[in-house]
Design a protein around this nucleic acid. Sequence first.
DNA 1: AATCTATCCAACCGCTCAACT
DNA 2: CAGTTGAGCGGTTGGATAGAT
Length: 327
Amino acid sequence: MTVVAMSSSLSSSSLSKKKSLSSSSDDDHSDQLRRGPWTLEEDNLLVHYIARDGEGRWNLLAKRAGLRRTGKSCRLRWLNYLKPDVKHGNLTPQEQLLILDLHSKWGNRWSKIAQHLPGRTDNEIKNYWRTRVQKQARHLKVDANSAAFQDIIRCFWIPRLLQKIEGSKTLSLSSSSSRSSSMLSQNPTVSDQPVNYAAPDLPLPPPPPQQLPQEVSGYHQEHHDHNSDSEHTSNSCISSTESMNFSQISQLSEYPNSPFHGIGTFQKDCYYVDIGCNNMETMALATLSVPAGEFQNPLCDPHVAESNWVGCDFGGNIWSMDEFMAI
DNA sequence: AATCTATCCAACCGCTCAACT
DNA sequence: CAGTTGAGCGGTTGGATAGAT
């Protein structure tokens, strides 16, 4: 049988390691039940069986399809990887925004969150949260579910994502936009970065730094009225033509516990963002520990530098905003 | 070039819940 | 009503790989 051959061909240490995790009773059947990475042939068996007979009754399906896998394993493989509508690849900034918001609302209800991101699986979202979001919380030595971290997300992360979205729009319209290039050139550390929206980790042009001190006192971005460049960057407007349905985000902002709550308004085709911090304590945490002008990041505009708004020192753990934004 | 470290993500596990017998 | 089974969920693990030293 094909699968037997595949099984024997898999000499990877992963397989033996996974096996070692199983109980002794499982070991009794270890020659019958396969674990570890799926092979192409196993995938084909599963896909063809489901195409012919449909999904469900996974234990039975596994047997009938000739797969030496548990029903659970088959189900997971199908739902997380083989199902035709499963999206692969990096999460878009829009998707990241949605995840941040929905998680603030629902917590670790990954499957529920996944329902709002078509083509994304709970596993993928969970991985994103653990590897990207929780990592930042760890660096900052704050609880990822704390109000403080929620505010950090709201004040720094979300604006950055919104800028990514806007940046991708700008780029798609005109990659040689003089306005954009001048904006970028104001920030050497950012302009040196390749703009790659497939890679969500890359930092993007920061929000207008002069806003930050004002954010503390409830700054409203949509009412920005001077400096065309900063207006361009601060007045975050997400076109409804973006891949994500932003009426969803608009709705999400209605949830009181959401970082989106009250941050934006839906006007015409755009979602205007009003990002403010509602937790003064959090903002107070983000005090300066870096000499003025050392950074070129959202918090390091000359105006900001004068106000000593530069680095983050969370509990003595000095961590530059560049690091924070490199998420 | 070799080694170490960090990151990503597929796959596993245990648990819970609902449906069925 | 109790036991069994299937499905689904969230947490965790560890191999692969990229990047740093």
